[in-house]
Nucleic acid binder design. Structure first.
Lengths: 209, 209, 209, 209
DNA sequence: AATGAATGAGTTTTCATTCAT
DNA sequence: TATGAATGAAAACTCATTCAT
């Protein structure tokens, strides 16, 4: 039975594999360490036999990395869809900040991507390898931001005096900081105020009066 | 013999323990996964006997988490010393951006901290626990930024109209974005220009003319 | 459906079973270890479904042992037919030596039999058990040699002063040594010369002038 | 702790490894299939921990193949010593036939070697590989026979008209046939008579009056 | 009758930890 | 105090066998 490569379309994943992916991502969301997950824990959670996992994957590592990739692909697809559905840059930015507050950490593709891009551990490198060979590659989020900001410039919503790539990372960094602030932080101002300041800070930088 | 708690002063660490810490951090910098490190790998690299590690620590986990904490403490101390030695906010910001470019990822306490604060894996939670019981706790970097920005406001270098905590995270987020940009890349503008824009962006936000 | 017992006439074997036998013997000839053959490897090679094998056999062991028995039966039948078709002892001996050179090791029933008779491993014992319950039993080759040498004595081609059984094993041993010599080698004389010496050595012992 | 290569001198083998070798060879002598031996069976028999086996070997296969090699080396050393201690060819031949009757099959290096040289299974090929990289290589027995017969020719005990290699294999083949006869055989003459005929047959061929 | 995805019992293998030296 | 050989509990992985289709 066809071995899993990670390049499968999201809709074409065998049901048992989907169960495995969901099990892994549940367990990770519950705070498990990717490298300490046991195959039996995963298959028990997935409700399938241990051997079945090995019908689709060659090793435990493969199961976990592919599950993480799947999660990121799915989250990115969702995020992309939602953002592109919004027509103004302000709406898009609002949606982004709302999402970030809603997800708070786990199963947040934005966060996962930052982890990935700033981590040189074996695990992260393996995830990146799979991402690079799939539709949803490593830089998909960066390209999405580029696209959003590019369109905003075209529409005149955002001034074009700053380089696109600078804006991509400036916006990304501020959103990430907001996420860290409300997630892990020892924050001394209220979250709604923080949110407002982040929103306005980005607009002020990109759309000066 | 004295078990290691992680609250030892940096100067009072037994030599074999220091060797263990260095070995772990070397291996992590080389891309090893914290959860997959073997005790024998660590002690081999440290050049000491496997049994010796257990004279100071109760388990492998302890060795690795304490080594990571040590590394973060050391890096924080260094960073703190250097930043406080600089008298103007602009100098401090310049130093920070230089450091970030120099270290590019591994053994970068800034990066490690972001990981930590945005990761709910077991390993990260254990590191945080030790941090919380030691001098250099989890929020030391945040407090350092607060201190720097607070002083800058007092000196009149930075305008006081933005809340301190917003500035802390805005600056942190932008610096992090710069780090991600130059590390994990796909960047379409040159790094020096990016650096200049980040530097000016922060100043423009905090010290408007 | 009719379970396979190993006592079927060679012509009455179901086609899928024949495919299994051929697959096993191919794989063994290619150097596979009988105890390490996987059912899936066998059925893949045979081009049939894995479940199908269990329509005819109760276990993997059965498949392999019966396949080996089948191979030996077939080879023995062929050898017997050819040898009995030759009317003089010299012709028979020549045929034997030619066969031995032609087959060189694998799928050589002579060699397999020696293995079997000198091996007390579980696998060999199981093959012997089936052989003993079938037409072509364990000692068929020995009895064939006895028959050939007996007739040769009757015809006066071979002197009767040596006991039949001694001649059977002397001839068998020399032929086997020739096979080992040309197969596993390190031989310092040329094969045709070796062949000539073996041939003449046997004749000289059995038919002294 | 030094990994085992199979090239160790017989006297320099670590005690736990020796226990493993003895356990394997006992089990094989009792009729176990090399490929079906379990690590736990071996270590239980050896009276050591399962993990200990993996301190010296990388896999189960390695344990078994090295044990077989060790057994062959030891047996060959013993055989070589005994044969070379005998001064006349007749004494040597007598010793050889006595040994063969005494050992009857298992732990008989002569038999094992024939198996090896006539078997192209993976297992045998692996044993040969190790043999080839050690002192006691694959052809050691053949070279010993060459040496014995060469000296006998020099001493005038054996006529020099037959090529040495032919004599080596003729003698080997006859001894093997004797072994098969008394081991596996359906023999119709008494063993002592068979022995006498084999002995005289060899002498008659090599030392004609 | 034929199939092959699913299974889990049974193995192999790993490696943190101990403890005699 | 330092060591590293020995250990076995725990984990990964295999693959013969079943059974729904």
């Amino acid at each position: 039975m066809a071995r899993i490569t990670g390049t499968e379309e999201t809709g074409r994943i065998p049901p048992k594999v989907l169960l495995l992916y969901q099990a892994v991502n549940q367990l990770l969301a519950e705070g498990a360490d990717p490298a300490n997950l046991k195959v039996s824990t995963i298959t028990d959670r997935a409700g399938i036999g241990k051997g079945t996992a090995y019908e689709y994957f060659d090793s435990k590592e493969e199961i976990v990395t592919h599950a993480v990739v799947y999660q990121m692909q799915t989250a990115m697809e969702q995020l992309e869809k939602e953002l592109l559905a919004r027509k103004s840059f302000r709406d898009q930015l609002n949606y982004l900040l709302d999402e970030v507050s809603a997800q708070k950490g786990e199963s947040n593709c934005f966060l996962k991507l930052v982890h990935l891009l700033t981590d040189n551990s074996q695990f992260s490198r393996q995830v990146q390898e799979i991402l690079d060979s799939a539709t949803c590659e490593r830089y998909r989020l960066i390209r999405l931001f580029r696209k959003l900001l590019g369109s905003a410039v075209e529409r005149g919503e955002v001034k074009g005096n700053l380089p696109l790539d600078y804006m991509v990372f400036s916006m990304g960094g501020r959103v990430l900081a907001y996420m860290v602030a409300i997630t892990g932080g020892d924050l001394q101002i209220e979250i709604p105020r923080m949110r407002k300041l982040v929103y306005e800070g980005i607009l002020a930088e990109f759309c000066p009066a």
